[in-house]
Each structure stands twice: as C-alpha cells, then as structure tokens.
Design a binder for these strands. Structure first.
Lengths: 200, 200
DNA sequence: GCCTCACTAGTCAAATTTGACTATCCGAGG
DNA sequence: CCTCGGATAGTCAAATTTGACTAGTGAGGC
C-alpha cells in the first residue's frame, strides 16, 4: 500500500535482521523523509503492523560484542510470507501506475530496491508501466486539446497541461531506465560480479 | 498546510456560502479525489477544523424553495480571517516549492483558483517559485553528475534522474504558464470582461 | 399504493501519521 | 569524579485520514 511499508520491508530485508532504529537511520540517510513520508512513528508502526500480519517476525537482537545498551532492541527479519509480499509489492509498485498522489513515491521506493529483481523481471514490469502511463498520456493529451468545449473555465487547462508534462517526463525516464537495464547497466539479482544487490 | 484545506476553503469561497455536500460534489467533479486526497471525511473534517479556527463560520442554509430535505444542512462561509488565510495559502502554495510529497498537490489546488488573483500577483508568485525550483534543478543535476564517486550503489542515480526530469518538466510548465499569463491569457481578478473568476 | 433505485448529506470507528518527548549510554572536557 | 552533548532507541497522545455505513427524499415503474 504505502511507500513506507515497502521501504521498511525492503530495508529489513536488505539487512537480513534489523531493529527499528537501524531502519530509521537508513531511511533518513536516504532523505526518505523528504520524498516519502517516513516519520519515526510511521516506521515503528509499520514494523509492528507487519509483524502482526506475519510478514516480519521478532528475533533476539544480536548482542553485539561489548554492547548492552539502551532500551529494548527488538530486531526483525522477514518471514517467508514477508518475502513473497515484498516481491508482490515490488511488482505492483513498479508496474502499476495508479495515478494517485502516492504512486510516484512507491515507484521511487521500488527503484531503490531494483537490483533485488532479475534483469528480465525488472524490464518486464517497467514495460508494463510504460504501457499504462502511455494510455494516461493519450487521455490527457485529448483533454488538453478538447478542453475548450468542455464547459470548464479555461485556466483549468493549465492543470491538464501540468499533468501532461509530468506524465511525458515520466515516460521519458521510464524508457531511459528500461534502455539502460537492457543495455546491461547495474548489477541485478541474476548477475554475478561485485554484487550491490542485497542477498536474500 | 494540506491541499485539502486550500481546496475546501477555496470552494466555499467561490460559492459564497456552501454546505459540506456541495463542496464534496464540486471536488469530486474535479476528480480531486485522484490528485489530492479528498475523501468525504476529510472534507467535513476540514470544514469543522477551519470553523474552530475562525476561518469559516456557520450560517443557516438557504432554505431553497420547496426544499426541506434530509439531514442538518449547515452551511459555511468565509470570515475575514478566512479570506486572508486563503490569500496566504494561495501565495504559499504557488510560490514555495517545499519538495515534500504534497507540494505539487498544493500547487495544483492553487492553480484551480488562479483567477482569484490579480495578473501581476500571480506572475510574481510563480516567478518566485521558478527561482526556487531552478535551484533544486541545479542541485539535482550536480547529484546526477557526481553521484558515481559518492559511495552509493549506482542504481540510486536513477532516482536522481527521475527527480531531475520531473523538476525540469515542472520548470518548463511554470515558464509556459507565466508566459501565457503575461500574454494576457485567462480572465484574472483585475480584468473585466466575462469573468470566470470568483466574486469576493 | 408500494417497492426499488439513485441521489442527497453526513457520521463514525478504525487505521494511520505526526513529531515532540523520554530515557539510556558513551566519551570528552573540566 | 561530574557533567554535558550527542547518538541511540523508542513511546505516546493528539491530529488526521479513510471509506464503509446510516438515513431521508423523490421519481419512476408495476
């Protein structure tokens, strides 16, 4: 659903085992408080919610050498359900463009974890999205071209124009990204070599 | 703060006197549930909140001829405070680009009410925003060009690219809008002729 | 006359988000 | 030894958002 869920799940997954503050720090270091909504409370909430949904499970925090500090320190890791939910959320966030306010933040979150997918999968999901966005683009272009007759105050066309130019930009970027992926950029889950992808 | 507040305040202002369902219908007819977050509950909440803040006041609903239907039907209208708050929100929403998730929805909401401003004011506010967005554009462009060194996994650059292309699109549109305004398009608050602007 | 359907108008509990606030530990400086 | 700042780790009440649900009214069909 929300970008926060995907981000939190993804960060725990990438650490293998993480407690709340670790996730929080990581997300802050990505400035994710800016482009998604990740206030501290939301993170802890997401962790608990997903634990209740059996996507995460609590594990004893590693008592790291020489550390017995501070509060409780519950750590989390993904369950098998969490792993499939993560794959599902990635697929949806990359491929579906639900022109809702949050759509782009989910997209951005998913791109963060892009190397966790195989190259072919990533390309296929993004192509799916391109189709969807293209359809929107066409609809909006029509709106802009025929809006005059439509009984709406003329300045409303500016909104359509704004939408259109945004959507065009998105298509351009998506196509570029697909091209770069197809051209072998980035180390994906099915590549070898120095892996920046996160181990499962 | 939120786009909803501006939308609700603006719709009440444009009707002069409106009850909740009127606002809701109007906003739905703008598909504002898609590009801002206007669920029914938020609208009624905003109305009550702003009433508590003395931006709106309750007035007896016009008992329109032959109607005594349904529930309570409280109507609202702007107080003087509400009027200045509206002007303030318009100014902020148009001129400040707080790269937060909600920034663009506020912008869109404000554009909806653009003709309530004088031409000069609208142009000046938008120019201010262009400056701010340009600064962001430069920052992001740097990020894209120097990201390699930055110790981040390379695919993260795609995020920057996405941000950059979005920001570029926004600048293009803003400049176009300013040009159209400067060229005399749209009937603004200080124009005469068949006014589509909303009477104060 | 009665039933259904759609529109009108709004309520409310539950879910979520916010961000200021609490509390612990560590190291440096005095 | 004491204290003060900063990082660590998280909590919690309040604010906000969500959207399914309630309930009155009129029009049209049978």
């Amino acid at each position: 659903m929300s970008a926060t869920r995907l981000l939190v799940l993804g960060v725990v997954r990438m650490y293998g085992r993480a407690h709340g503050y670790q996730v929080r720090r990581e997300l802050l270091s990505w400035s994710a408080d800016k482009w998604a909504n990740v206030a501290p409370g939301s993170i802890y909430h997401a962790l608990k919610k997903m634990t209740a949904e059996r996507l995460l499970e609590e594990v004893a925090a590693d008592a790291e050498p020489g550390e017995a500090r501070g509060p409780d320190r519950v750590a989390y890791r993904l369950t098998p359900d969490g792993e499939s939910e993560f794959q599902l959320m990635m697929a949806k966030s990359l491929s579906e463009d639900d022109q809702s306010p949050q759509g782009d933040y989910r997209l951005a979150a998913a791109v963060t974890f892009l190397p966790t997918l195989t190259r072919a999968k990533a390309i296929s999901l993004l192509r799916h999205r391109i189709t969807a966005v293209r359809a929107q683009e066409a609809t909006t272009r029509n709106l802009v071209e025929e809006a005059e007759d439509w009984g709406q105050p003329p300045h409303v066309m500016e909104l359509y124009r704004f939408w259109l130019i945004t959507v065009e930009a998105k298509v351009t970027w998506l196509q570029g990204l697909v091209a770069r992926l197809a051209g072998g950029n980035y180390v994906m889950a099915d590549d070898d070599g120095p892996s920046f992808g996160f181990p499962g």
